[in-house]
């Protein structure tokens, strides 16, 4: 088993997910099954290949430095689960 219960918990903690107990067991099994399948790609030699990140050879796609978004923030608030005057609200966090 590549992904143990412990490493499952570590990943879940990292990506901030909670699971129901039965979900957890099924998922650990599923994940290991998938990882096993993925590892079948290892029979292909890729030593001389560069990792591909982009489809096209685009480069230097820029915008000019112009501040023109004066009203873009309007209405974005309305989707917030909790807000106070102009702020978004989260539970208290102290010490950065």
């Amino acid at each position: 088993m590549k992904i143990s219960k412990e490493s499952f918990h570590n990943i879940a903690d990292m990506v901030k997910l909670s699971f129901k107990e039965e979900e957890k067991l099924k998922l650990i099994k599923d994940l290991n099954h998938t990882v096993e399948f993925i590892e079948t790609m290892n029979d292909m030699n890729t030593d001389s290949q560069e990792p591909m990140s982009y489809i096209h050879n685009l480069k230097n796609v820029f915008r000019e430095d112009v501040a023109s978004n004066a009203k873009a923030g309007q209405g974005l608030h309305e989707n917030a689960p909790e807000s106070m005057s102009d702020y978004y609200v989260v539970p208290p966090i102290f010490h950065d």
Partner: peptide
């Protein structure tokens, strides 16, 4: 954790976990 745990279904969580791994 609870917001994401409740908000996402099984398949979404599966892929997030796999991707992070």
């Amino acid at each position: 954790k609870k917001s994401r745990g409740e908000g996402f279904g099984y398949e979404v969580k599966r892929r997030i976990m796999l991707g992070a791994y």
